[in-house]
């Protein structure tokens, strides 16, 4: 049924979105992962074949490298932003606070009170898993 990432029954996630999550999982792992390991590190139970397709596509684009690991390949992200691009991105992020309005940040800075409030909220609502 789920032959393609754009038709994943576990979610309405598109191809690009799944590729982002695959890439995110590989970066988070910090070492090469087989498709099965990647599948377990992606939320929403994507089909194995969907994950394999996303990995192959990212490998063809040069975003990932792969090494043989038994019968399967293990994939790892290519550190593709060394040097100039990453430096320019850092400069962009470090530019005066005013300019950050262009770049919506995921989380703003916390005060010490905020930190205590967050820890209390997390304690009151532990994750289900």
């Amino acid at each position: 049924m789920a032959r393609d990432g754009s038709d994943d029954p576990a979610s309405r996630r598109g191809r690009g979105e799944l590729e982002s999550e695959v890439l995110g999982a590989l970066w988070a792992a910090g070492g090469p992962l087989t498709p099965g390991e990647v599948q377990r590190r992606i939320s929403g139970d994507p089909a194995y074949s969907t994950v394999v397709t996303a990995l192959s596509r990212l490998f063809e684009k040069g975003t990932l490298t792969r090494v043989r690991s038994g019968r399967a390949y293990a994939y790892a992200p290519v550190a593709d932003e060394p040097g100039l691009a990453a430096r320019r991105m850092r400069q962009l992020l470090d530019a005066e606070a005013d300019r950050h309005i262009v770049l919506a940040r995921f989380v703003s800075d916390l005060s010490d009170d905020d930190e205590q409030a967050l820890l209390r909220l997390l304690g009151e609502h532990p994750r289900a898993d």
């Binding site: 690009g16 982002s20 890439l23 975003t63 932003e81 691009a85 320019r88």
Partner: peptide
């Protein structure tokens, strides 16, 4: 300046 049109860019 990025090589392709991928959505997620990871900074090491």
């Amino acid at each position: 300046g990025l090589a392709d049109d991928r959505e997620l860019v990871v900074l090491p």
